[in-house]
């Protein structure tokens, strides 16, 4: 997707976010209100200025027929999907089970590792996580049934 259009969409999103926080800040009591209100007002003004400037940039570029930077979106979305999938797996099966499934499938399909290497890597990670957990008193996310 065109980088300038994405920038425009992002500044539009930030403008909406600051507008939301501004409206929300008006519902706070006076002492809780001043800080987020001032910040939100500043945010709304600046993002609006940036949004307009971005519209002009795009308009000028189209007039001059300049080369536009295109950002690939599908590939990043695929990897973001892997991250979210891993978290969903933790939510369903707990960290240990999710880590086994995620690591094994990722190493096989994305890293193109051999089955044996992937298996050894998974076992190694599980040992490390367990050792860290007991030695450094580290906790890990639990699943639906609290395991």
């Amino acid at each position: 997707m065109n980088k300038d259009y994405l920038n425009l969409i992002f500044s539009g999103f930030l403008f909406s976010l600051f507008t939301f926080t501004l409206i929300e800040a008006l519902t706070f009591s006076k002492l809780a209100q001043f800080f987020p209100l001032y910040i939100s007002v500043a945010g709304v003004i600046l993002t609006f200025v940036y949004f307009i400037a971005q519209v002009f940039t795009i308009y000028k570029q189209q007039k001059k027929e300049e080369n536009q930077t295109i950002l690939p979106l599908l590939q990043p979305l695929k990897y973001i999907g892997w991250v979210i999938g891993y978290l969903l797996l933790i939510f369903i099966g707990g960290l240990l089970l999710a880590t086994v499934i995620f690591l094994f499938t990722f190493l096989i399909f994305e890293s193109k590792m051999k089955l044996l290497s992937a298996g050894i890597s998974v076992v190694f990670v599980l040992i490390c996580v367990s050792l860290l957990s007991s030695a450094l008193d580290i906790y890990w996310p639990t699943n639906l049934i609290g395991f």
Partner: peptide, 9 residues
């Protein structure tokens, strides 16, 4: 993938 596990924990 290993970094992700570490970061999540």
């Amino acid at each position: 993938p290993f970094l992700l596990v570490l970061l999540v924990v």
